[in-house]
Nucleic acid binder design. Structure first.
Lengths: 205, 205
DNA sequence: GGAGCCCCGTGACGTCTGTCATGGGCAGGT
DNA sequence: ACCTGCCCATGACAGACGTCACGGGGCTCC
């Protein structure tokens, strides 16, 4: 078996370096590139053409899901393994739709990561079964495009007038979208709707 | 120089194992214990008596700050280095007050961690200068005990009546505390007050 | 003893919020 | 052509929210 060349993307330098140290312990794995931002992933993939790219979801510049799609388009030979802190159902779904080969949460045992990488490199899919079930149960996002935008803008706690100004909408329209989102999420407050949508991974982009 | 014995506490197993791998690369460092929960820290410290304990702040069971105080009380020979994802001013302040010897955010370069551990073990203090300045500027929390509790309870987006039921208070009293907290944080909404207070690290406990 | 702060509660006021009805415009599908 | 769904907007209404004034009780510190 030849050695596998890896790319590592995580915004936290300490975690990134630690993961590199962990993977370098394996004789058949070699970390050839590290990046801290989502928009640096594609250029690094183009330059190094790694066998597997390990991508975090929460990154500045570009989120890991969108970066996954970009990697698949730029270099189909590179498999993507998404490594994230939050096991949100929507993240998993959208990662797989974007062409990821694996999805691992950051509280899986450390010794399993190398095997996950090898399996992904071999063309297999790696997904936590419990998380997969949860993803199926939660289903796809019921929120419309605008509702998602409004909820995203409502995260920092602004008033309806603020959201209207940011989104160039009428204040009444904002409240209508919010009301609809509240109904779909089963919440009773806009803040609760934001929380529930975020927990389901419906607020990406 | 003798080898330093370390304890590692982080709720995410992958990060914990990766940090262990990173630190084991140093010949003079030895990870002798790993725990995933805050309440397991003290028992592990009592059993292994490490030279340095690396503690995350966000942990189930017991937060890293409180765990720091417990470690200092149980084994004063063990120095504490807090390693956290969020560089919130209140975290730093309260960690140092609790007896921590160092405070490092997770996006510091990986190669600096080992040096930070050694410096802490030598009795020095390790603090990011920029973060220290920010902590001084932000000052201590202006929120009263009740205001903090109310803001904490308001995080999941419940109505004032919900908070009143949880905290066994009158609904009007809850709104009074919220109003006061909103004024002190400079916010215009309860949600914004929650966000600002959380960013400052005022919502621990 | 008073002064100060925090706690709890009440009542009232204006504003904001969440909901509904209703309208129009624009895309997609049978 | 029709229906359906999403978008935007308006107006109206009950309820929740944020603010203030005002009480009372407790505590500490001078």
């Amino acid at each position: 078996m030849t050695t596998l060349r890896l790319l590592l993307a995580d915004d936290q330098a300490l975690v990134r370096g630690a993961l590199a140290a962990l993977l370098q312990l394996e004789p058949d794995l070699d970390v050839v590139a590290e990046v801290a931002r989502g928009d640096e992933v594609v250029v690094a993939v183009r330059e190094h053409r790694p066998d597997v790219a390990l991508l975090d979801v929460e990154m500045p510049g570009l989120d890991g899901i969108t970066a996954t799609a970009a990697v698949r388009a730029a270099c189909p030979a590179t498999r993507v393994l998404v490594v994230t802190t939050f096991g949100r159902p929507g993240y998993l779904r959208r990662a797989m739709e974007a062409g990821a080969s694996g999805f691992v949460v950051k509280d899986t045992p450390a010794r399993e990561l190398a095997d996950a990488v090898r399996r992904v490199a071999a063309g297999l899919r790696v997904v936590d079964p419990a998380l997969a079930a949860e993803s199926l149960a939660a289903g796809t996002s019921p929120l419309t495009e605008r509702e998602t935008q409004v909820l995203r803008a409502a995260r920092d706690g602004g008033t309806a007038a603020d959201l209207a100004a940011v989104l160039h909408l009428s204040e009444g329209t904002v409240r209508n979208h919010l009301s609809s989102a509240i109904g779909k999420t089963g919440a009773r407050t806009r803040a609760e709707a934001v929380r529930l949508a975020e927990q389901n991974g419906w607020l990406l982009g």
